[in-house]
Simulated assay, not measured.
Amino acid sequence: MNQAVSSAAAATPRVVLFDFDGVLVRGDSFSGFLRVRVRRQAWRLALLLPLLPALPLLLLRRRGRRILLHCTVRLLLLGTSLSRYRALAESHARVQALRRGFFVPDAVSALRRHLLRGDRVIVVTGCEEHLARALLQAVRLDGVELVASRLRRSWLGAVPAVHNVGREKLRQMEAHGVEPPFACVYSDAGADLPMLLAAERAVLVNPGESLRARMQARLGSRYAEVEWS
């Protein structure tokens, strides 16, 4: 019986999670998409003006920042159908993929090595799923599992449905059928602490001094770091 259990455990691939923004790609990819939208349709900035008086209060608390982000996405995608958004996201991804230095070569290579070892690799990101998928396709990683933020249809256009950040990443992983502990997690963000705490090996990517000190204190012996360029 014990031998059967050991054999089953050996046959189960290790689960390795990669954050996306700041790890596989430089910067915030969805924010980059929205900035391009605003440059091409500057009138959308006027839609954000009613938020200005409440801005100081919204920025004070995490919940306020979530509300601000939710409202900003709604307004900047106002009147954009889900199918139109997907077409725009795919077009944007093709352009971004051509930018030198947009992808982090060391990170992409590390992900490929995990795949070659037989690990189950999942990209877990706050980026919207169609944009993230299109970007992964650009570097021939379209077969990698993806758990991401999602939009939904509404009469206003495409609106946020799931914002996959912080503890929400663990909830979305559970919905995806994968539960802790994870063998390894790569991230560059303190917001991913819940996911990092659920890992046997928590790898911080290019951490600054402040993040390093904070994460080492919380993660203890499971803490590791890499410098990727």
Rank of each mutant, 00 (worst) to 15 (best):
2 N>D: 14
2 N>H: 15
3 Q>W: 10
3 Q>F: 13
4 A>C: 05
5 V>W: 10
5 V>E: 11
5 V>H: 10
6 S>A: 13
7 S>Q: 11
8 A>P: 01
10 A>R: 12
12 T>S: 09
16 V>L: 04
19 D>K: 05
19 D>T: 08
19 D>C: 06
20 F>L: 07
22 G>N: 08
23 V>A: 03
24 L>R: 04
25 V>S: 02
29 S>V: 02
30 F>Q: 06
32 G>V: 11
34 L>H: 02
39 R>F: 14
41 Q>N: 08
42 A>K: 12
43 W>A: 14
48 L>F: 00
51 L>A: 05
55 L>N: 00
56 P>C: 02
58 L>V: 01
60 L>M: 15
61 R>C: 09
61 R>L: 11
61 R>P: 00
64 G>D: 00
65 R>K: 08
66 R>N: 09
66 R>A: 10
68 L>Q: 03
70 H>R: 10
70 H>M: 03
71 C>D: 03
73 V>G: 05
73 V>Q: 04
75 L>F: 10
75 L>Y: 11
79 G>F: 13
79 G>I: 12
82 L>G: 11
84 R>M: 06
85 Y>R: 04
86 R>G: 07
86 R>S: 14
91 S>W: 08
92 H>I: 02
95 V>H: 15
97 A>L: 09
98 L>A: 15
99 R>F: 13
104 V>T: 12
106 D>N: 11
107 A>R: 03
108 V>K: 04
109 S>G: 08
110 A>W: 00
110 A>N: 02
111 L>G: 03
112 R>N: 02
114 H>R: 14
116 L>C: 11
117 R>S: 12
119 D>L: 01
120 R>P: 03
123 V>N: 07
125 T>A: 02
126 G>Q: 00
129 E>C: 11
130 H>F: 10
133 R>H: 15
135 L>D: 02
141 L>R: 01
142 D>C: 07
144 V>C: 04
144 V>L: 02
144 V>K: 03
145 E>N: 08
146 L>T: 11
147 V>R: 01
148 A>D: 10
149 S>Q: 08
149 S>L: 08
150 R>M: 07
151 L>R: 02
152 R>H: 09
154 S>D: 11
155 W>A: 14
156 L>D: 09
156 L>H: 12
157 G>A: 10
157 G>P: 06
160 P>E: 10
160 P>W: 06
161 A>I: 01
161 A>R: 13
162 V>W: 04
163 H>W: 11
167 R>M: 04
168 E>M: 13
168 E>G: 01
169 K>Y: 07
172 Q>E: 14
173 M>W: 03
174 E>R: 15
177 G>Y: 05
178 V>Y: 05
178 V>E: 15
182 F>Q: 05
187 S>E: 01
191 A>P: 00
193 L>I: 07
194 P>F: 01
194 P>C: 08
197 L>K: 13
199 A>K: 02
199 A>H: 03
202 A>N: 02
202 A>S: 13
204 L>M: 14
204 L>R: 01
206 N>T: 04
207 P>F: 05
209 E>Q: 09
213 A>S: 15
214 R>E: 12
214 R>G: 06
214 R>A: 15
216 Q>P: 01
220 G>V: 09
220 G>R: 10
222 R>I: 12
222 R>Y: 07
222 R>P: 04
223 Y>K: 01
224 A>G: 06
226 V>M: 05
226 V>N: 07
228 W>S: 10
229 S>R: 14
